[in-house]
Nucleic acid binder design. Structure first.
Length: 158
DNA sequence: CGAGCATCCTCAG
DNA sequence: CTGAGGATGCTCG
């Protein structure tokens, strides 16, 4: 986990807290963090943060996004290709690492690696990628799988 | 190069 | 059913 002081905001979700980091007025990072170390509400949050909060509110109540805010392009060309494919997975459905590997003409472990490096949780729905036999991993190994399970159940998978 | 990964498949027991 | 082991593509040092 990164230095919490660098977050521009914190969002309280039903399953945990999301650290928000902006870059140049756009969303650069959205990561699960252990606990909030800043006030959840800022006096005059930037418009990017307000838009993001609306978006997350909608997701956690309706399980749907109104629209995805603009993101800062980061990662290698390959990683962006994987992340772009993740954005195509509709709410409520999942794909396996292997399926994506075939579509992108690469290997399943490479897909998993790109998922692990996803800088923007929820909005780039890496939680909709599961393994062929089980649910796969989340945030590194398997310590935070309850979050992935919660998100998938919230979206009606299973 | 070589090692490390959020995998997958096959093949023994 | 379970576990071991090889194949696999990408990234970082």
């Amino acid at each position: 986990m990164h230095d919490p002081e660098l977050f521009d905001g914190v969002y309280e979700a039903p399953v945990g807290w999301l650290g928000i980091r902006l870059e140049g007025g756009k969303l650069g990072e959205l990561d699960w963090i252990e606990r909030p170390r800043q006030s959840l509400r800022q006096r005059h949050p930037q418009s990017a943060i307000r838009q993001l909060i609306r978006c997350l509110d909608s997701y956690f109540t309706n399980a749907s996004f109104p629209k995805i805010p603009s993101l800062v392009p980061s990662g290698t060309a390959f990683q962006r290709r994987v992340w772009r494919a993740l954005l195509q997975i509709p709410c409520g459905s999942v794909k396996t690492y292997g399926q994506l590997a075939v579509e992108l003409k690469t290997g399943s472990r490479a897909v998993g690696q790109a998922c692990r490096l996803n800088p923007i949780a929820i909005l780039i729905p890496c939680h909709r990628v599961v393994a062929a036999a089980d649910m796969g991993g989340y945030m590194g190994a398997s310590g935070h799988l309850h979050i992935k399970r919660w998100l998938l159940e919230h979206e009606g998978v299973y």
